[in-house]
Simulated scan of single mutants.
Amino acid sequence: MTRKKIQIKKIDNISSRQVTFSKRRKGLFKKAQELSTLCDADVALMVFSATNKLFEYASSSMQQVIERRNGCSENHRLMDHPSADQFQVESESSNTLRKKLEDKSRELRYTANTFSTN
């Protein structure tokens, strides 16, 4: 026997909604715990009920996971909006590489001309 497919929409009956919330919350927390255990992942999960009650799960410290997330956000923000200093460094690196390429090309042409004249 298979489960019947349900339509995803807000449940009108308040008591049915609360029962569904409790069951699904437990399932969600179980999946978070399994993901953490099976994949050695840091997981933090926060759920607020309709009555503003907080339910949370963290595989390690919730605070550590949040700080780690905030650090990643800062890194992504820096990558999306590089500073003028980063452009300066990249420009200097680019100029150095361009000069090395020109020097090697000149050296290669000189070597090729030397062999062709012999």
Rank of each mutant, 00 (worst) to 15 (best):
Q86W: 13
I66R: 14
M62N: 10
S83D: 08
S91T: 13
E56P: 09
R106N: 10
N70Q: 03
R24D: 05
G27C: 02
H81T: 15
K104W: 11
T114P: 13
K23R: 03
S116H: 01
H81Q: 10
Q33M: 11
S83E: 08
F29T: 07
S59R: 03
S116K: 09
Q7L: 13
L97Q: 09
T20Q: 13
M79W: 00
Y57W: 11
S60D: 12
H76M: 03
R69P: 01
D80H: 02
V65P: 00
A32L: 10
Q63L: 14
C39P: 02
S93N: 15
S61N: 03
L97F: 01
Q64V: 13
V65Q: 06
L35N: 10
T96E: 00
L45T: 05
H76W: 00
R3H: 02
R106S: 12
S16I: 08
T37W: 00
S94H: 02
D42S: 09
T96I: 03
N13D: 01
F87H: 15
S59P: 05
T37S: 06
H81E: 06
T2H: 04
R17D: 03
E67N: 15
C72V: 05
S94D: 03
T111E: 12
R98S: 09
L108P: 08
E67Y: 05
L28C: 07
T51D: 09
R109A: 00
S91E: 07
K31T: 09
R24K: 10
N113T: 13
M1Q: 04
F115G: 04
K104P: 04
E56N: 15
N118T: 14
F115L: 10
T111S: 15
R98G: 04
L45C: 11
K9C: 05
K31S: 04
S105D: 12
V65D: 04
S15I: 08
N75Q: 01
A84E: 15
I6D: 10
K23D: 11
R106P: 04
S36D: 05
R24V: 03
R25T: 14
F115M: 13
D85C: 15
A58V: 13
A58R: 03
L101Q: 13
C72N: 14
M79R: 09
Y110Q: 14
R17M: 09
K26W: 08
E74K: 09
R68I: 01
N95Q: 05
K26N: 11
L45Q: 07
I11V: 12
E74N: 01
S61Q: 02
K4N: 14
R25E: 12
T111M: 14
N113E: 14
F21K: 01
T37M: 05
Q63K: 15
Q7C: 10
F115P: 04
E34M: 12
R24W: 06
R3N: 13
F115V: 07
R25M: 10
M62Y: 07
K9H: 10
R77Y: 03
A112H: 14
N70F: 02
E107Y: 08
L35Y: 07
D40K: 06
L54G: 06
D40M: 07
A32Y: 02
